[in-house]
Simulated assay, not measured.
Amino acid sequence: MKVADPIERARALLQLRRAADAERELRGLLAQEPQHTAAHALLGLALIQQGQAEEAVREAQEAVRLAPDQWLPHYAAAQVYNRAHRPDDAIAAVGAALNLQPEYAPAWEVLARAHLLKEDWPRMLDAALRGLGLDPQDSDLASLAALAYAGLGDVRQARAAAADAVRLDPENPTAHFTLGHVELRLGDPRRAAESFREVLRLDPGFGVARDGLVAALKRRNPVYRRLSRLRGRFPQGWRLIFLLPAAPPVILVFAVVAVLHWVSWVAEAWSVLRLARGRATRLLFEGVEARVAALCLGLVAAGAVLLVLGIVLEADVMGVPGAALMALVTPVQEAAHTGSPRGRAILYGWAVLLAVAVAVSVLLAAPVAALLAVYAALATVWLATPVRGRITPAV
């Protein structure tokens, strides 16, 4: 009984998202019984919930080492690998668990989530359906099946599976989030917004649902939606730059793409600021999002004033820096929409560097420097791609 109590308390704490408290319980148990398999397995889950991926993986591997013939350590290890964004390891671990306990539906859910990380839709769907065959009332498995159908482009099945997930558990925020995600992906932002609002009603701390609601509200704006579609017709891969020596006209494509991205970023800033000021939607935004939007619109307004004055007065030293100020919207927005803190810092640093270049061009009356800043700012749509690729883990 003394051994079981800390394990049960740790499990309850993990369900309540109190990972640090669960960690303390488990470390106390391991201080008394260092070879306790379940304690190592649960400690791995507690650590991964706190973002300590390396130590969590070590604990999960220790649990497997202690009891390789038991399915639970493999199952827990698969969950740790999933959260650490190591889907191949997760697939191997949950495969070992299923070899030992093939009738355990949650293991099929973990397998489906691992294939989700790899965007392997057929295998993800197969795992979700096999889990549903064992437990047809599992709302999370139905949600995963819906995501897989959406990835495969099966609109009818995706909507049906997502609706079924909500029917199975109307109080499950994940089910409503999946329905919203499916509707958003399949082009119905109104229904998506309704689902994301329900998620936030059930769980106000569901941050990803807030992001989804913001995206849905933006896509309900016809101007924003048309700009996004137009921008999506053009490739933005930075590797196209290598085509310039062989095909100089390609530079026109770069110019069109850069301008379209700039216009889209301005439209996004306007949408965010409008929603941030709305009575019903202001709580959806963190202060930094509204401040970035206001900054971008301020750059456009100030730059437009300088540009118009430069044209009227025929003064390049005023007009070109005005255009450069307007172009700074692109690097600022690219930085704000980068998930990795390190990548975001790099892009914000790049934006500050360009702003300094604009200021220097004004002080030295050197419009050529400001013109180069315009080109560099608009080109950030390609510069940001390798930064995100090197800094942000692929999910």
Rank of each mutant, 00 (worst) to 15 (best):
K2E: 13
D5L: 13
L14R: 05
L16Y: 09
R17I: 10
A22S: 08
G28M: 09
L29I: 00
L30Y: 06
A31M: 05
L42C: 01
E55Y: 10
E62F: 10
V64R: 02
R65A: 15
P73A: 01
A78G: 06
Y81S: 01
H85S: 14
H85Q: 15
A92P: 00
A93P: 05
Q101C: 11
E103C: 07
E103N: 14
Y104L: 13
A105L: 09
P106R: 06
E109Y: 13
L111F: 05
L117W: 08
L117S: 14
K118D: 04
K118S: 09
R123T: 06
D126L: 15
D126Q: 15
A127N: 00
G131N: 10
L134E: 07
Y149A: 03
D154E: 15
D154Y: 09
A162T: 04
A165C: 09
D169C: 06
A175E: 08
T178A: 14
G180A: 05
V182H: 04
E183M: 11
L184F: 10
P189A: 02
F196G: 02
F196K: 07
R201P: 00
F206G: 08
G207W: 07
R210D: 03
D211K: 14
R219F: 01
V223D: 10
L227Q: 10
S228Q: 15
L230N: 04
G237S: 11
W238N: 06
R239E: 13
L240T: 13
I241E: 14
L243Y: 07
L244W: 12
A246Y: 10
I251L: 15
A255D: 08
V256Q: 02
V256K: 04
V259I: 13
A267V: 06
A269R: 00
R277M: 09
L283F: 12
L283H: 14
E289H: 06
G298D: 01
G303C: 03
V305G: 10
L307N: 11
V308Y: 04
V312M: 10
E314T: 12
V317N: 11
P321I: 06
M326K: 02
A327L: 05
P331E: 08
V332R: 03
E334N: 03
S340M: 01
P341R: 02
P341A: 03
R342S: 07
A345S: 10
Y348A: 03
Y348P: 00
W350T: 03
A359M: 11
S361T: 03
A365P: 07
V374A: 04
A377T: 03
L378R: 00
A379D: 09
L383Q: 02
V387G: 00
V395Q: 12
